[in-house]
Nucleic acid binder design. Structure first.
Length: 431
RNA sequence: GCGGGCGUGGCGAAGUGGUUAACGCAUCGGAUUGUGAUUCCGACAUUCGGGGGUUCAAUUCCCCUCGUUCGCCCCA
C-alpha cells in the first residue's frame, strides 16, 4: 500500500526546482534593489492571530484554515497568508522602534488553505509577499505595486494587467456600507444565500459575488468612489499620480474588493491575461492596512501596505505565455570507466574535477561503455573521458567534446589545469 | 460544500462482453568484445485504481469506493 501525497499538495521535482530557484533569485534581487529585507516567521501561529487579523467574516477564517490543537491544548493554525504574521512580528519585536521607517520587509514561503484543488489553486502554495509598515505616504503604495510589476516583468510576463481601487478610510467605508445595506435590503431575498449572509456582516462583498453578477441592483449599487471623503479621494488620486510617474498602467475597478477585512484605502490585484491560463487569473493581490498594527496590540503608527503573489501562478502564467525560464545547470565532464582499476581512477578523477570546480559525473551501475556514453549524451555533458587499461598505463586520456565529437589527448593533470581554456576553445571551434 | 471529466506497463496512449491487451517514448541486451545521433534485431502488463454485482465469460455493463483533474463559491 503506497502512501500518496495529501490532496492539494505538490512535489516539486528536479527539472522544476531549477525554475523555482531562478524565480526566487529574481525576487531576492528585486527586493535588494528596492531595499526590502527578508523576514521569516513561523509556518503556524496562534489561531487568534488570523481570526483577529484577517477577520472572522472572511472565507479564509470561516472555511479555509488548517487549525489544530497541540499537546498543550493550544489552538494553532497553519498560516493562510503572510501579512498577519509579519505584523505580529513587527509588534512583538518592536520594529516600530527601528530608526529607519517605514520598515520594509519581504517573505517567501508556503501558505495553507483548505480548499478544493483546481488549476492554480492548492492547499499548500508558495507565496512571495512584501510589507511596508509605518508610512502613510501614497508614494510607498506605488512603490509596492512597482515592485510586484517589476518581478513579473523580469520574469518575462507580458500579458498582465494591474487593477486598482480605493476602499477609503473608516469613515468612508461606514458611509458606503450603510448605503449598500439600504440599497440591497429591500430585495435581498432575490440574492444567493451567501449574499444574504453578507448583507449585514460585510455588504461590500456582495459586489464581488459572481452568482448575482447580472442582478440589476448590482449595476445600480452605490459605488465606493462616490463615498470616499475628501481625504481618501485625495489619497487615491496621489497613488494614481505616482503610478503615472512610474509609468505603470492601471485600470480602476470600483468593484474590486479584497477578501480580507484589514484592507482600506489602496487595494489592487494583478491579473494574467494570458490565454490558456485556467479560470483563476489573479496572480497577486494586496492593499493598504492602516490600523492593523493597533488591532494586533501595537502602538499607533502610520499604516502599512503590502501584497502577496503566488509562485505557482507566476509559473503557470509564464507557461501560458510560452515563456521559458532560463536555468543554468550544466555538466562539464562525464567520466566513463571500464573495469575495476579504471573505476578506482574514475572515482578519484571525478572527485578531483569537482575539487577544481568542474562539474563531473560518472556511472554507478557498472554499465558498458556504450551505455555510459549514452548517459553522458543525455545529461548534456560538454566533455566525456574514457578511462581503461591503456589510459591507466599511459596516464593520457582522450577528452571528447561531445558537440562535435572531436577528441584531444591530454594528461589528467592537464585537463584540470587548463579546463576553462580547453572548454572555451572547443566552443569557439564549434561556432 | 456543490457539479463535470478521467483512472490500462516507468511515462504517454489505443482497445474489445470471450485467453495474442495495439502503438509510441523510456529502459535493458545484441548487431559494433573500448566511445553518445541514426538504423536493425530482441526483452519489457498472468493484467487494465480498489471492492461488490450481472453473466457461461468482464479490462470492457451496473453499483459503491478511493484517487486524480477541471469548474462553481472565494481567493494567491
Amino acid at each position: 500500500m503506497i502512501i500518496n501525497i495529501p490532496r492539494g499538495t505538490k512535489d516539486i521535482l528536479p527539472g522544476e526546482t531549477e525554475k523555482w530557484h531562478a524565480i526566487e533569485e529574481l525576487i531576492r534581487d528585486t527586493c535588494r534593489l528596492f531595499q526590502y529585507k527578508e523576514i521569516r516567521t513561523p509556518i503556524f501561529e496562534h489561531t487568534e492571530l488570523f481570526t483577529r487579523g484577517v477577520g472572522d467574516t472572511t472565507d479564509i477564517v470561516q472555511k479555509e484554515m488548517y487549525t489544530f490543537t497541540d499537546r498543550g491544548d493550544r489552538s494553532l493554525t497553519l498560516r493562510p497568508e503572510g501579512t498577519a504574521s509579519v505584523v505580529r512580528s513587527y509588534v512583538e519585536n518592536k520594529l516600530f522602534g527601528l530608526p529607519n521607517q517605514p520598515v520594509k520587509l519581504y517573505y517567501m514561503g508556503p501558505m495553507f488553505r483548505y480548499e478544493r484543488q483546481q488549476a492554480g489553486r492548492f492547499r499548500q502554495f508558495f507565496q512571495f509577499g512584501v510589507e511596508a509598515i509605518g508610512s502613510n505616504d501614497p508614494s510607498i503604495d506605488a512603490e509596492i505595486i512597482a515592485l510586484a510589476m517589476n518581478v513579473y516583468k523580469k520574469a518575462g510576463l507580458k500579458k498582465i494587467k494591474l487593477v486598482i481601487n480605493s476602499l477609503g478610510d473608516t469613515e468612508s467605508r461606514i458611509a458606503h456600507r450603510n448605503a449598500l445595506i439600504d440599497h440591497f435590503s429591500p430585495a435581498i431575498s432575490q440574492f444567493c444565500s451567501d449574499c444574504q449572509n453578507r448583507l449585514l456582516k460585510n455588504p461590500l462583498r456582495i459586489l464581488d459575488c459572481k452568482v448575482d453578477r447580472e442582478n440589476e441592483l448590482m449595476a445600480k449599487a452605490p459605488k465606493l468612489p462616490d463615498f470616499l471623503n475628501a481625504e481618501s479621494a485625495a489619497y487615491f488620486k496621489k497613488v494614481k499620480h505616482y503610478l503615472d510617474i512610474l509609468n505603470i498602467k492601471y485600470e480602476v475597478d470600483p468593484n474590486l474588493v479584497r477578501g480580507l477585512d484589514y484592507y482600506n484605502h489602496t487595494a489592487f490585484e494583478i491579473m494574467s491575461e494570458g490565454k490558456g491560463f485556467g479560470a483563476i487569473s489573479t496572480l497577486a493581490g494586496g492593499g493598504r492596512y492602516n490600523g492593523l498594527v493597533e488591532d494586533l496590540g501595537g502602538p499607533e503608527v502610520p499604516g502599512g501596505i503590502g501584497f502577496a503573489m503566488s509562485i505557482e501562478r507566476l509559473l503557470l502564467a509564464l507557461e501560458a505565455e510560452g515563456e521559458i525560464i532560463e536555468t543554468t545547470d550544466s555538466l562539464d565532464v562525464y567520466v566513463v570507466a571500464m573495469g575495476e582499476a579504471a573505476k578506482d581512477k574514475a572515482v578519484s578523477f571525478v572527485s578531483l574535477l569537482r575539487q577544481n570546480n568542474i562539474t563531473a559525473e560518472m556511472d554507478f551501475l557498472d554499465r558498458k561503455v556504450k551505455a555510459q556514453m549514452k548517459s553522458a549524451d543525455r545529461l548534456n555533458a560538454k566533455f566525456s573521458v574514457v578511462i581503461g587499461d591503456n589510459e591507466l598505463e599511459s596516464g593520457i586520456v582522450s577528452l571528447k567534446y561531445l558537440a562535435n565529437g572531436k577528441q584531444q589527448d591530454l594528461t589528467f593533470e592537464k585537463i584540470i589545469e587548463d579546463f576553462t581554456e580547453i572548454a572555451s576553445r572547443a566552443m569557439e571551434e564549434l561556432a
